[in-house]
């Protein structure tokens, strides 16, 4: 009897050592899912003529081969599809499209100044950044040295943090300000660190 591979649709000849698809519905579901096949659509279509090529399994999972079948380790699972099959989704293509979509939504033509960012008047850059909150500003210091300079250079105007470090020693909390290495002010520590209550 001629059998076909459920996965790659190849007709399996005598010496192909086909792998029988398990009867157990639960394991079948797993196999189909691993092969990225539509589980609902395929689970009941599997009949005695549907096998899998032994090439879909790792060699370590193959315990032996009989005349008609390949015997697998009881936990064996088929390998995810790697061959190009038109009927299956090309993952690379999907990822590429997704990346492109994300890129397009992020960039949009409007976000690229005609003459590039460098040609923009620094006044405009400053005003745009001035609308951002301190968390964003701190994060955007990492964009480039120019951004870092604009942000640090406008620390009087931008809402940058006034406190550089806050630490606890015994019953007291200490804070330092940017540019000051010594403790600027100390507070009596009242509550646990997680509550952050200090006086």
């Amino acid at each position: 009897m001629e059998v076909t591979c459920l996965c790659c649709k190849k007709v399996l000849k005598d010496k192909a050592y086909p792998v029988k698809i398990p009867d157990n519905n639960y394991i079948r579901q797993h196999w189909l899912a691993v092969m990225k096949m539509d589980v609902k659509k395929n689970i009941n279509k599997i009949d005695k003529q549907n096998y899998l090529c032994s090439t879909h399994f790792d060699e370590e999972d193959i315990l032996g081969k009989t005349l008609n079948e390949t015997i697998l380790h009881y936990e064996a699972l088929p390998k995810p599809l790697k061959f190009k099959a038109k009927k299956f989704i090309n993952e690379e293509k999907v990822n590429r499209i997704k990346e492109q979509q994300v890129k397009e939504s992020l960039l949009g033509e409007e976000m690229l100044p005609k003459n590039g960012w460098r040609q923009l008047p620094s006044e405009i850059k400053f005003i745009i950044l001035s609308f951002l909150c301190k968390n964003d500003l701190e994060k955007y210091q990492l964009v480039s040295s120019e951004w870092n300079k604009i942000i640090l250079g406008s620390s009087n105007t931008f809402p940058l943090r006034q406190v550089e470090t806050l630490y606890r020693q015994g019953d007291y909390c200490f804070l330092t300000l940017p540019g000051f290495s010594k403790c600027f002010k100390q507070f009596k520590y009242i509550s646990t660190p997680s509550s952050g209550n200090i006086i």
């Binding site: 890129k103 992020l106 960039l107 976000m111 690229l112 100044p113 590039g116 960012w117 990492l142 964009v143 480039s144 040295s145 120019e146 951004w147 870092n148």
Partner: peptide, 9 residues
């Protein structure tokens, strides 16, 4: 990426 800025840090 948005602004075509070079990462020069």
């Amino acid at each position: 990426e948005m602004f075509g800025i070079e990462d020069d840090l």
